Amino acid sequence: MRAWQGLLQGWLSARADGDWYARQCQDLAHATAGDRPLNLLFKAMGIAPRKLGKQDLALSEAEQRQARALQPGFDASRWSVDQAARVGLILAAAGNLPDGAAFAALLDELANQGDIQEQIALYQGFALYPQDPALLARAGEAVRSGIRPIFAAFALRNPWPQAMLPQAAWNQMAVKTFFLDLPLWPIQGLAERADQDLGEILCDLAAERAAAGRSLNLELWRLLALCPGERGHALLRQQYADTRPGTHEMYALQLAARESPHADVRALAPAGLPGIEFSDEWERLAQWRE
């Protein structure tokens, strides 16, 4: 966490009042019980937007490389300056805690008492937090949240869920993007974590949406093609046969088939252009919704 604090200090000093931020971090790092550190943390987090501003963090390529050297998959492309500062303040307050359980307790206090913007920063911060099982209960609260920006702060562009969530919780998180009308592509580790149980859930979801006459997020076909099973393969085959050529849905089905690790699914679509970046293509398809 010290390494992250150093990076955050550099980023914020280049964009805002780094001296103010450094003083708050120092006060939190050296706070005693008599100083009521939780109160100090809430006060600093509360005034951070006024002191530092809410502009986009907008990391340079060099800054992004430094961050990914600490945590592969780190992505702060949607962070603002005040959000980065709030995460850094949490890390500063956690510096003297004895273990992961104490850190989890601190996050619980913040989640229970903080406003929605402070909670968003808290869950974005999982990208920087230790990959400690003590934090799984708090992560589970994010997965269960029906508040769209809180769920998105944890689930999207974050390497922590891929590394740490149990399979059932990860499956729940992936499926929930469809219910909250969020894009799937920013979830990290789709190909690595998708499993047969998820494929069955997706087939059920597709059947329910079809019976209700409701439209489907086209990214469902991508996720299903990664973990189809016999039932999923049959559904993809049927969808491919029923979809008009030249439509967005046909392109999504073809893209899903080409990305699939399963040869029988790949055979549904003609070969695509070599060197295609699937994540870029799915981002382009999903932009109209995000």
Rank of each mutant, 00 (worst) to 15 (best):
W282K: 01
W11R: 02
A263Q: 15
A210W: 07
Q113Y: 08
G140K: 03
G125M: 00
K43W: 10
G18Y: 08
D181N: 15
C203F: 05
K54F: 01
P98Q: 06
L202S: 03
L202P: 02
F179T: 14
L57Y: 07
R214P: 01
A206H: 12
P133R: 06
E192S: 13
K54L: 08
N171C: 02
R144T: 09
G140M: 06
L190M: 12
R144K: 14
A134S: 14
G95V: 01
D181W: 09
F42G: 00
Q167D: 14
S279R: 15
E208A: 13
R86Q: 14
G272P: 07
W20T: 09
Q172F: 03
A16L: 03
W282T: 02
L235N: 00
Q113C: 08
M45Y: 02
A206S: 13
G88R: 02
F42L: 12
A142D: 04
A241Y: 05
Y129K: 01
D19F: 07
P274R: 11
G189Y: 03
Q239S: 14
E290D: 13
L7M: 10
W20M: 07
P37Y: 00
W170I: 01
L218Y: 08
A169D: 09
Q254E: 15
Q287R: 14
Q162I: 01
A105T: 12
A137Y: 09
E281P: 03
W20Y: 10
L273W: 08
G246R: 05
L7N: 06
G114H: 05
D115N: 15
H262G: 02
A225N: 05
D35H: 11
A191M: 11
H233E: 14
D204P: 07
G272M: 10
E249K: 14
D242Q: 15
I47R: 14
I276V: 15
A85Y: 01
F151E: 00
H30N: 12
A234H: 11
D35N: 12
R209V: 04
P261S: 09
G189A: 06
A286S: 15
A211W: 07
I47P: 04
W221C: 04
D27P: 00
E63D: 15
A94G: 09
L8G: 02
P261L: 10
K54P: 01
L223P: 03
L226K: 02
I150D: 00
Q172Y: 05
N39Q: 13
A121R: 02
G6R: 12
L224V: 09
A168C: 00
G232F: 06
Q5D: 08
L273T: 13
G275L: 09
A111L: 10
L106G: 01
R86A: 07
G272F: 06
V81K: 03
C203Q: 14
A168Y: 00
L273S: 12
L106T: 04
A225W: 03
L184A: 06
A286E: 15
G73S: 08
L28D: 05
R214F: 07
P161T: 01
G100R: 05
N112V: 10
D19I: 10
A286C: 12
A31I: 11
A93T: 05
A155Y: 02
A139E: 01
E283R: 15
Q238D: 14
P166D: 00
E259P: 01
K51A: 13
G6C: 10
L38Q: 13
P159S: 06
L202D: 03
I147Y: 09
P37K: 00
R144F: 04
D115K: 11
V143S: 03
Q254S: 12
L226E: 04
A31F: 10
I150Q: 11
Q167H: 06
A44S: 15
P149G: 07
G246E: 07
